[in-house]
Amino acid sequence: MLEKTNEIAIKDLWEELRLFTAARIALGRTGVSLPLSESLKFKLAHAHAQDAVYSDMDVNAIETALDGLGITHVMVESGATDRTTYLQRPDFGRKLSANSTALLQNKRSIQKDICIVIADGLSAFAVNENAVKVTSLFMESLSSKGFTFTPVVLAKQARVAIADEIAHHLNARLSVILIGERPGLSAYDSLGAYMTYMPQPGYTDEKRNCISNIRDLGLPPDVAAEKLRDLVVRSLQLKLSGVNLKDDDRPLLL
């Protein structure tokens, strides 16, 4: 690619230092400017990130996959009606729309242990890639131990906090949300998992625990599902989540 332009640019003589960092060092220059090949590499990474922010959750594919696994599900929306509103009004993305609130209130049943929410967040791309995989591995490992689940909730234009409202309506002891993280230039497909014990609307980050960078080249989905299982079991046994649930707590026996 771009061989002719690379002939004109001046190479930096310290390329070997890339061994020590993933930072964009020793890029070379033409005059004082960035060589075209580096300029285009950067723009491509940014293009991936931008596309991820505006990507849509592939609801059909996710629902079909959940059906295939015999997992019941329900679809809701936040108060943010479109992506532009979503980006400017995080407060709307944290709350259910009126219709969705009514829908979930009608689905309330006897108390269950865990409510899983799958939400687009800032990268629906990440959700489309790995959310079902994490969900199925996680549910499989806990259902067999007798833990109970509400239907899985798919949430559009959603922020992390929406899970607490959802789980509260569905009468679950614990909420887990799998949500697309803010894309960076190096990764635009990271999924995050957040968990709250005895969730209530209005809870903030101090009540949550988080596993981040879930993607094939980061924390792989199967490893993430195991970590999430350990975290959730500890939380349910100790009856707490957030800052008081320390990372260094030993996993408890199932």
Binding site: T21, A23, R24, A45, L185
Partner: peptide, 19 residues
């Protein structure tokens, strides 16, 4: 370096931009 902060995950200006 290259306007890409790999720790804070945002884009700033680069050494080239400064030049």
């Amino acid at each position: 370096p290259g306007a890409d902060d790999i720790m804070l995950n945002y884009q700033s200006t680069s050494f080239h931009d400064a030049m």
